[in-house]
Amino acid sequence: MKRTNNYITAYFEDDDDLKVGIKSLLEKKVTIHDVLTPFAVHGLDHLLNFKRSRIPKVGFISGMVGGVSTLLFQTWVFTKAWPLNIGGKPFFALPSFIPVTFELSVLIAAFGMIAAYFISSNIGPGSKNVIYDERVTDDRFLIIIDLEKDNSINDKEKIKEILKEIGAKGITIKE
């Protein structure tokens, strides 16, 4: 979801205040574009009605793909590509295949999830995201309200009012 160039930012200095603030904003039908916090505020995702992240599903699928293909690969190597008599063990030495299968399931699951995370969040090496307020990573809890995207309230002054009402600080309008 991309932000337009027309938006308001305001911040809180406490997470509990933030939660109260968000609640009242939502009650007033203000669509919040984004909330930036210095740490993962418990329950914020519920408050903002985020859907459950699909990262676990990505992890499960990539893990399964990794595991199954590793198992198949090992089986192919030992039974088709070049069946070698190694210590009299059967060519299809399933117990021997388990450790590598497990490890690669985990590895590929981890890769899959991290790729999903980086791509979906647009972070990663060289990513150029906008830093709104340097203290967001310190002690400020910033709310961004996109003015263009928001159809319910077009009046930026009104939003400013509401923000003031709920005790937000540093209300800035960018155009």
């Binding site: 984004d34 909330v35 930036l36 916090t37 210095p38 740490f39 993962a40 505020v41 914020l44 995702d45 903002l48 985020f50 459950r52 992240s53 990262i55 676990p56 999830m113 991290i114 995370y117 980086f118 979906s120 969040s121 647009n122 972070i123 990663g124 090496p125 060289g126 990513s127 150029k128 995201n129 906008v130 830093i131 709104y132 967001v136 990573t137 910033l142």
Partner: peptide, 16 residues
């Protein structure tokens, strides 16, 4: 890596 502290990111961060 371009960290912003967005709530959505935090959610994914927690999840991952």
């Amino acid at each position: 890596f371009g960290w912003t502290g967005s709530a959505k990111h935090w959610q994914r961060h927690e999840s991952i």
